[in-house]
Computed example of a mutant assay.
Amino acid sequence: MFRRLSFLLVSLLLISTVKAEPIELTISVSASPLQAWRAMCVDWQIRQWTDAESAYFELRSGGPWRITHRDQTLEEGIIETALPAERLVYSYLIDDTETRVSIGFSKSETGCDISITHDEFGSGRSGEKLRSKLLEAWELKLPQLSAYLDRIPGSYLALPYGEATNPAVLLLHDRFGLNRALRDLADSLAQMGYVALAVDMFKGDVTSDMTQAARFLELVNNEESIQTAHAAFAFLRDHKQVNRKRIAVWGLGYGGSMAINLATQVPEFKYCVNWYGTELPNTDQLPRIACPVFNIFANPATNYTTPQAENINRSLTQAGVIVET
């Protein structure tokens, strides 16, 4: 009898000291490593694919992070490592236990592989219970993350209030990338009753520096930008709150040139707005534009001569395109 009790006590002791196994998950997405990294630690991107009401990440070693969901539940912890496009490591506080999350981002042939390790749940039954709870949470999160990164990676969707169908605008950024100014424009359009989708054509790169912006233009692949814009248009067209017969494309600078280019390939556009875009597609492609084009240049045109602006209008008009200025 004594031996049996001793064996039972030892067994219980061993169970209570066995650490729960780490959660190890991997997903593959079509986004770039930088887009995937930003989607998991940049406030406005967190709100794009989760039900977060607010998010805050201080991306430095020792910096706090917190996500407040619409039901007022919290996720929070401390950043350990934040290497853009490479690694994100942070503590995750749950049920008075500080767990640890390590996420790696590696380039693949089709985009990016995201590897997640979540551990330090504690020991025994409580550790296993916590592990199960967090595994369930990851299994709910990752399909949402994948959907965002596969369909509109790094992009910003702003919706009007309510469930009605609305006209929509596809927004294409300039040489600085998808910055705060373009997101603010999307929000303003949403307040006016438009569904607005600001597209990331630079795979997560964004800057306020003129020299770096010029470098972006040297490195960008225009065909990839057009493919990204095509995918964004398809997403917008199929969105339940969008009137697919009333979709416009709007672009600034580099985005303006891409807007006209895209209009030669998408006859469904209702309108095309070009701010300072000066690169036109081949002349034989211009007659394919089925919508009016509104070209906006300052007078005299900032950074471009007035004759250049006139030449763009002339080329479009000669191709039979309705041009407004």
Rank of each mutant, 00 (worst) to 15 (best):
P84D: 05
R87L: 14
E80H: 15
R100T: 14
E75H: 13
D71M: 06
R87W: 06
T81A: 12
A85S: 13
Y90F: 15
T99E: 01
L83T: 10
W65F: 13
S108D: 10
Y56Q: 15
I103F: 02
I116R: 02
G104F: 04
A82D: 10
T68Y: 06
S115Y: 08
H118I: 02
T50K: 06
E58V: 08
T110L: 05
W49G: 05
T73E: 09
I94W: 10
D119S: 12
A55N: 03
E58L: 10
I103L: 09
R70A: 05
T81R: 10
L59E: 12
G111C: 04
A52C: 09
C112V: 06
I78K: 10
D95C: 03
P64D: 06
D95H: 09
I79E: 06
Q72E: 08
F105M: 03
W49M: 08
R70G: 03
R60H: 15
W49Y: 11
D95S: 10
L59V: 08
T68V: 13
G104L: 08
G62Y: 08
V101A: 03
L93S: 10
H118N: 02
Q72W: 05
Q48T: 02
I116V: 13
F121E: 00
Q48I: 03
I79K: 07
S108W: 06
R100D: 10
D95Q: 13
A55K: 01
Y56F: 12
T68S: 11
E75D: 14
E80Q: 15
A82Y: 09
Y90N: 07
D95L: 08
R66H: 10
S106M: 11
E75P: 00
D96V: 05
L88C: 04
G63D: 00
F121D: 01
F57E: 00
I116W: 01
S54F: 05
S108L: 13
C112Y: 00
S115V: 11
Y56R: 15
